[in-house]
Design a protein around this nucleic acid. Structure first.
Length: 371
DNA sequence: TAGTCGTGGAT
DNA sequence: TATCCAAGACT
């Protein structure tokens, strides 16, 4: 049990190990409050390697709180395109506006005040406070859960919010008066990310806690941490349309709430459709289909939903011209030049399989970092 | 408390 | 192919 374990004995070996094994990461080079904030939001449920290029591009384009607060939503989502959990960046902008109004553009050096900002929970508040401001508060993430339940052989379900509070309380006490709370928190995470790894066997020979790890002593490393299994995903059958008028393709803005909120997508409907039904469907969109062609099937897996998609390419006669106001309305089709669509509109990688019929690529492909 | 919210790498 | 799950937060 973690409550029976003396956390104090972990500190010195951990800090000594971290001094020699800290990775070089972009956000560590100049850990200003803003850059620490951006990195911590990006790193939520996201691997370091995936975050790196996004962090560089994002902080170059939006170097401070003010720039973030004023960035147009489409551009903001474009900077986040492919990272997932898009509400993170929408919330971060709301918080940026808050910080401009209440704190003059400077993130508060106060755990409780940070916690009140949109998108900043106990982990992120602790990370910013400790790393950017040297305030002795914990930052408990998945790594910390894993290494501390292992070292103390605690089989409490880590999904229980009460266990997080308990860990935070224990850590906060040990951190009182600590000179380098930011290094301590980062060291805990670094150990979890690089040594006491989540999948596969941990590298115990390299671990500074090797001799005092109870899970290792008891041969229970593989069974810790304990967590309740995720519920099975629900399956959704969808039909995706690549509607083309010469060189232009139809996309539309998704609703402001819910899955992939505010992003752009290929028009799609729930369920399966015959070729004839597709013709009917497209006519209902005030368009004149000339030819319908079946495309391959595709699958996309979200955290809680699995899309099983069928696709159709639909060639239509000259579509009308839209005003800017009409283009902004959600659910309204906009015909865009394929290349321009890639410059301006954030399209989730769920549509990657059909994006190639638009002449663009989504997902996987690393974007070039330009200015 | 439990469901919602992405994407991709590792096994 | 299937499953897990990553520097979580919000409702």
């Amino acid at each position: 049990m973690i409550t029976d374990f003396n956390l104090q004995i972990l500190i010195e070996p951990l800090l000594h190990w971290f001094a020699g094994h800290a990775r070089v990461l972009p956000w560590r080079e100049e850990p200003t409050p803003y850059r620490v904030w951006v990195s911590e939001i990006m790193l939520q449920q996201t691997r370091v390697e995936a975050v790196k290029p996004y962090f560089e591009r994002f902080t170059k384009r939006l170097p401070d709180v003010e720039a973030l607060a004023e960035c147009p939503e489409d551009e903001l989502l474009k900077l986040w395109e492919g990272l997932g959990y898009y509400n993170r960046v929408r919330n971060m902008q709301k918080a940026a506006v808050q910080v401009m109004e209440e704190y003059g553009g400077k993130l508060p050096a106060d755990y409780e005040k940070l916690l009140k900002l949109k998108g900043i929970g106990s982990y992120t508040a602790g990370a910013i406070a400790s790393i950017a401001y040297q305030i002795p508060v914990p930052a408990v993430d998945g790594n910390v859960f894993r290494i501390l339940t292992r070292v103390s052989a605690d089989d409490t379900d880590i999904m229980k919010p009460s266990f997080r509070s308990l860990l935070e309380k224990e850590l906060r006490e040990v951190m009182q008066g600590m000179e380098m709370p930011g290094a301590f928190n980062q060291a805990l995470m670094e150990l979890g990310a690089t040594v006491c790894v989540p999948n596969g066997a941990p590298l115990c020979e390299q671990c500074p806690w090797n001799r005092l790890c109870l899970a290792r002593k008891e041969g229970r490393i593989a069974e810790l941490p304990v967590r309740t299994k995720a519920k099975a995903r629900r399956i959704e059958k969808r039909t995706v349309l690549v509607i083309r008028d010469n060189d232009k393709v139809a996309i539309r803005k998704r609703p402001e709430k819910g899955l992939l909120a505010g992003l752009y997508e290929l028009p799609n409907v729930e369920g399966r459709y015959s070729q004839d039904e597709i013709v009917h469907l497209v006519k209902e969109m005030q368009l004149s289909p000339i030819r319908v062609q079946k495309l391959e099937n595709a699958k996309h897996i979200f955290s809680h939903i699995e899309w099983q998609m069928e696709g159709y390419a639909v060639l239509v006669e000259e579509a009308g011209f839209d005003t800017e106001a009409e283009k902004m309305a959600e659910n309204h089709l906009i015909f865009v030049d394929a290349e321009k669509s890639q410059e301006k509109y954030a399209i989730p990688s769920a549509f990657a399989a059909y994006a190639k019929y638009m002449g663009i690529r989504l997902g996987n492909e690393k974007f070039l970092v330009t200015d």
